[in-house]
């Protein structure tokens, strides 16, 4: 096909013009870049981060550049320093973030249209926010099971993004440590106790905190149909605060 003068170039919907936000740090040095950025109204996308849980620095969506270093830093685990210039948004960072998100989508079976949290999903929202309209990498089509053995909740591994919020909330807030992660790499997956069905877990208190903090439809309440489930992780900072108060 020869090109024609009147035809504009392909409209690209996968890139949005990026603005570069620079954050200059002066003052406190005991807070993360993410915290300071958000205090200053600068948005940095996150997935494994959740207010009230220990940080992991694992999803890498919050990567930022620090002036003078060629490396990328996860904003959620990097402490600010005096005179640090942080670039929270640039074409390069945007590009990496979108690709990372594409990798997440390519890993398991994230079919929004038949998901219980369709419309209320952090992963789905991230795709909109980062302008990810499609996944250029091949889908890995990993086969995972659904664990519906719990009387009130169910776990669909196919929708899990391994953010490990469930493990952290169960271990650090509830104190049960029912969840952990078995295997490693691409074969890693969430397990309860000695890899027993959730419903047969001996340590699960059934508190449902894991369900509320799960960013996707991996953990959900039973009886909810497509798009009927919403999560409310807002209880976490409150709970954390109250627990601190209660300490002697």
């Amino acid at each position: 096909m020869t090109s024609n003068a009147s035809i504009p170039p392909k409209p690209r919907t996968d890139v949005n013009p990026a603005r570069i936000y620079t954050l200059r740090i002066n003052g406190r040095e005991d807070e993360t870049i993410l915290t300071v950025a958000r205090q200053n109204g600068i948005d940095i996308p996150t997935l494994c981060h959740l207010d009230g849980l220990a940080e992991r620095g694992a999803c890498r969506l919050c990567i930022v550049e620090i002036q003078g270093s060629p490396k990328l830093y996860a904003a959620c685990v990097t402490l600010v320093k005096q005179d640090m210039d942080v670039i929270t948004d640039s074409p390069r960072i945007r590009d990496y973030r979108r690709k990372i998100l594409e990798l997440i989508f390519s890993e398991r079976n994230h079919v929004c249209s038949v998901c219980v949290v369709n419309g209320n999903c952090e992963l789905q929202n991230l795709a909109v926010k980062l302008g990810m309209t499609h996944v250029r990498y091949g889908y890995l089509n990993l086969t995972h099971a659904v664990d519906a053995s719990h009387p009130r909740f169910s776990l669909d591994h196919n929708r899990c993004v391994l953010c490990l919020r469930c493990i952290r909330v169960c271990k650090d807030i509830e104190g049960a440590h029912t969840w952990d992660i078995a295997g490693r790499g691409i074969h890693a997956r969430i397990i309860s106790d000695l890899n027993q069905p959730w419903g047969e877990s001996e340590t699960c208190t059934g508190c449902g905190k894991c369900v509320q903090v799960c960013p996707t439809g991996a953990l959900s309440e039973k009886g909810k149909s497509v798009a009927e489930m919403t999560k409310r992780p807002e209880f976490l900072p409150y709970l954390q605060m109250m627990r601190k108060e209660a300490e002697p």
């Binding site: 694992a58 890498r60 990372i100 990798l103 390519s106 295997g183 790499g185 890693a188």
Partner: peptide
């Protein structure tokens, strides 16, 4: 180890 996305999924891709 599977902790971060670029390594876990990127190497598989």
């Amino acid at each position: 180890c599977g902790k971060c996305v670029p390594c876990r999924v990127g190497t598989a891709q």
